[in-house]
Computed example of a mutant assay.
Amino acid sequence: MVPLIRSRQSVRVLPADPSKLEVGDIVLARVAGTVYLHLVSALDHARRRVQISNNRGRVNGWTGHDRVFGICVAIDGVPRPGAAGKSRSADPDGAR
């Protein structure tokens, strides 16, 4: 499977609003003490957690909203579909 983000590609990440996440979003989340980019593969709103998968789609497990720090809004300058409006940024164009 072709990865969503290849090695050395530039990404733009903004602070995430976990309540607005959807399956298919790429998030910056802490796993076992290290922060990685992960694909959101399922949501559990009642327990305030997201299921995260690696860059190639393998499921890694569940993590709480408090461990989701950011959302990837662009890869190599190309906006990610559906990522707009899911950050906690006050600026409408996403700049901080």
Score class of each variant (00 low, 15 high):
20 K>V: 05
9 Q>T: 04
70 G>V: 05
23 V>P: 03
3 P>H: 07
44 D>E: 01
20 K>N: 06
35 V>F: 00
54 N>G: 08
54 N>D: 15
92 P>S: 05
18 P>Y: 02
65 H>K: 02
90 A>L: 11
38 H>P: 01
90 A>N: 11
21 L>A: 05
25 D>R: 11
18 P>L: 01
84 A>E: 15
68 V>H: 14
26 I>E: 00
7 S>N: 12
5 I>K: 03
58 R>Y: 05
42 A>W: 12
12 R>T: 14
93 D>V: 15
94 G>A: 00
82 G>K: 01
30 R>L: 02
78 V>Y: 06
19 S>G: 09
58 R>S: 10
21 L>N: 04
83 A>Q: 02
19 S>W: 12
74 A>Y: 04
26 I>F: 01
50 V>R: 02
81 P>D: 13
62 W>F: 07
66 D>K: 15
96 R>I: 08
13 V>C: 06
24 G>V: 10
48 R>C: 01
42 A>I: 07
71 I>P: 07
94 G>K: 03
68 V>R: 15
88 R>N: 13
55 N>F: 03
78 V>N: 12
49 R>C: 00
60 N>E: 15
36 Y>I: 07
90 A>Q: 14
87 S>T: 09
42 A>D: 14
7 S>E: 06
44 D>V: 03
55 N>W: 02
4 L>E: 05
12 R>D: 11
34 T>C: 10
83 A>V: 00
39 L>V: 08
65 H>E: 03
35 V>D: 05
92 P>W: 06
45 H>Y: 08
80 R>N: 12
93 D>W: 14
38 H>Y: 04
26 I>Q: 00
66 D>I: 12
81 P>N: 12
46 A>N: 06
1 M>Q: 08
3 P>R: 07
83 A>T: 04
87 S>Q: 05
28 L>A: 14
63 T>M: 02
74 A>S: 06
86 K>C: 10
7 S>F: 04
73 V>R: 03
48 R>I: 01
80 R>C: 15
69 F>C: 03
47 R>D: 11
57 G>S: 02
11 V>T: 09
39 L>W: 10
93 D>N: 14
80 R>I: 15
21 L>V: 08
54 N>Q: 06
71 I>V: 13
37 L>P: 09
59 V>G: 06
90 A>I: 09
45 H>R: 14
14 L>E: 09
50 V>G: 08
89 S>E: 14
29 A>N: 10
89 S>M: 13
86 K>L: 10
28 L>P: 08
36 Y>E: 11
62 W>A: 06
81 P>Y: 09
61 G>P: 02
26 I>T: 01
95 A>E: 11
77 G>A: 12
73 V>W: 05
40 V>P: 09
70 G>W: 02
51 Q>C: 08
59 V>P: 07
50 V>P: 08
17 D>N: 13
27 V>R: 00
51 Q>D: 07
47 R>I: 09
40 V>W: 10
25 D>K: 12
71 I>S: 14
35 V>E: 07
81 P>L: 13
20 K>W: 00
36 Y>S: 08
15 P>S: 11
28 L>I: 13
78 V>M: 10
60 N>Q: 14
90 A>F: 08
80 R>T: 14
61 G>V: 04
69 F>T: 06
5 I>G: 01
54 N>C: 11
74 A>V: 05
88 R>K: 14
42 A>P: 07
31 V>N: 09
46 A>R: 13
17 D>T: 13
70 G>C: 03
9 Q>S: 03
40 V>R: 14
17 D>R: 13
